[in-house]
Deep mutational scan, measured.
Amino acid sequence: SEEKKKAKERLERLGASSELARELLDRANGNAEKAERLLRKLL
């Protein structure tokens, strides 16, 4: 979806690899905010 694509791009801008961004979104069930929080914990 367009929303998921935007979320993935945002995670990548924050420093996630394409693969990591995809994994985070999967774990967050597509929830962009939750995926971002997970990423911030990792960085």
Rank of each mutant, 00 (worst) to 15 (best):
K5A: 11
L20E: 04
L38T: 04
L38G: 01
L25C: 07
S17L: 04
L43R: 09
L25W: 05
R40L: 12
K8P: 03
K41I: 14
G30Q: 06
E36Y: 08
A21K: 01
L42V: 07
L25T: 02
E12H: 06
R10M: 08
D26N: 12
L42K: 05
R13F: 11
L20R: 03
D26I: 13
E2Y: 11
E12Q: 12
L42I: 13
A21D: 00
L43C: 12
E23F: 13
N29M: 09
L39T: 00
S18W: 07
G30L: 03
L38K: 03
R22A: 14
R37G: 08
K8L: 15
S17E: 02
L14E: 01
K41L: 14
K4D: 14
K8H: 14
R37K: 09
N29L: 08
E36A: 09
L43Y: 08
R27F: 09
R40T: 06
S18H: 07
K34D: 14
K4V: 14
A16K: 02
G15I: 03
G15T: 02
S18C: 09
E19G: 07
K8V: 15
A21P: 00
L11H: 01
L43F: 10
L24T: 01
L43S: 04
K8M: 15
E19T: 08
R37F: 10
A16E: 01
R22E: 15
L14G: 02
L14P: 00
L42R: 05
A7V: 08
E3N: 11
S18P: 15
L11C: 04
L25Y: 05
K5H: 09
L38H: 04
E19H: 11
G15P: 01
K4C: 13
E9W: 05
E3I: 09
R40Y: 11
E9Y: 05
S18M: 07
K5T: 11
R27Y: 10
L42W: 11
A35M: 03
K6W: 11
S1E: 14
S17D: 06
L11P: 00
G30F: 07
N31Q: 04
E2Q: 11
L39W: 08
K34W: 15
E3F: 08
S1P: 11
A28F: 15
L38S: 03
A28V: 10
A16N: 02
R27G: 03
A16T: 02
E33I: 10
E33S: 10
N31S: 07
A35K: 00
N31Y: 04
L25Q: 01
K41Q: 14
A21R: 02
E19C: 15
E36H: 05
G30E: 03
E2M: 12
K34L: 15
L25M: 07
R10W: 12
A7D: 07
R40Q: 08
E3H: 10
R10T: 05
L39D: 00
K41M: 14
L14I: 06
E36L: 15
L20M: 08
R22Q: 15
E33P: 05
L42S: 04
L11F: 02
E3R: 11
E33Y: 12
S17N: 06
L24C: 06
K6L: 12
R10Y: 10
E19M: 08
L38Q: 05
G30A: 02
N31L: 05
L20K: 02
A7K: 07
E19V: 06
K5L: 12
D26M: 14
E33M: 12
A7P: 04
E19S: 10
K8E: 13
L14W: 05
E3W: 10
E33V: 10
K34N: 08
S1C: 13
L24K: 01
K4G: 13
L43W: 10
